[in-house]
Simulated scan of single mutants.
Amino acid sequence: MTFPCLVESYLRLLWTVISLILGWNVAGAGAGTGLYPGPYFPSWQPRNITVHQDTVAYLPCTVMQLGDKSVSWVRQHNADMLTVDHYIFVRDQRLSVHYTPDTSTWTLVIKYVQERDAGTYECQVSTEPKMALLVHLNVIVPQVEVVGAADKYVQLGSTARLQCTVSSTVQLPDYIFWYHSDDRLLEYSHPRLSIATARRGGQGSEMSVTSTLTVTDARESDGGNYTCLPSNLHPATTRLHVLTDEHPAAMHTGAGRLGPPPSVWVLLLPLMLLV
């Protein structure tokens, strides 16, 4: 239990003892008859919420001794009234409000969170003057990328290394899977493959994790799309081209096709000179 909670519990106990000594009826106390004269926000509730884009954001607001007052959620930057009690006042199906009687908590729920949803939200109580609790929503856009160009080239029989980096996350993924086309790559079933994971940062610095897929003795069948898929995040894809000795020019053209053979140019050259 945090220090503010201990103080609050102590004050409540002290008020109860004083009430019992003076003969006040606290057993049936309602709104405005406890330690506070009316509705109040407990000091322990969170004021900053951070979520990933496309996930669900839960913004809680606990109001004690509410009585007959209403609770509203307002988006601060444009003063939009989002909800009043259980009613939604905007045409956004992503928004809803959930009330938990046991804790007297009104939670604003935002599904499929976008960057534009970031900002400060006010939980207002219809007292006079109005009471407001500010909750700030941070929306993080995770970065998942395969390092380097979208198309990668490797010579037949050589080693290919693909690196997938995950950064700008609230929490690093529990795992990163690799797929070749639609087949998940497992080291024990692919002896020429190895997967290594390295983490960087922590303790206040930005964290990232890199998964490296190594393919030794590359074969033509190793060519195709490779996808890295972190847990609870979007995938990233690259395409591997395995070049044979007969087609080295594909590495430079990126098209995997060669021009006409030399014999064709020998036939065309005299005609070009005559023009």
Rank of each mutant, 00 (worst) to 15 (best):
T2E: 12
P4D: 13
P4W: 12
L6D: 13
S9N: 15
Y10F: 14
I18C: 09
I18W: 09
A27P: 00
T33H: 15
G34P: 14
L35G: 14
S43G: 11
W44Q: 09
T50P: 10
V51G: 00
P60N: 04
M64D: 10
G67S: 11
S70D: 13
W73S: 04
M81L: 08
D85I: 06
I88L: 13
V90P: 03
R91F: 02
D92K: 04
S96R: 03
T100G: 01
P101T: 08
D102K: 10
T103L: 15
S104P: 07
T105M: 11
T105A: 14
V109K: 11
Y112I: 01
V113C: 08
E115T: 06
G119H: 11
E122A: 04
E122Y: 11
Q124E: 06
T127E: 13
T127R: 12
M131T: 00
A132R: 13
H136Q: 12
H136V: 05
L137Q: 15
N138Q: 09
V141Q: 08
P142Q: 01
P142F: 00
V146W: 01
K152V: 09
V154I: 10
P173Y: 07
Y179M: 06
H180D: 00
S181C: 10
E187W: 03
E187P: 01
S189Q: 15
H190V: 07
H190Q: 14
H190G: 03
I195M: 05
A196H: 10
T197I: 13
T197L: 12
A198R: 15
Q203P: 05
G204M: 06
S205I: 01
E206Y: 05
T210S: 07
S211D: 10
D217T: 11
R219G: 05
E220P: 00
G223N: 12
G223S: 14
N225S: 15
N232H: 02
T238W: 03
R239N: 09
H247G: 07
M251W: 07
P262T: 08
S263F: 04
V264R: 15
W265K: 03
W265L: 11
L267S: 02
L273H: 12
L274P: 02
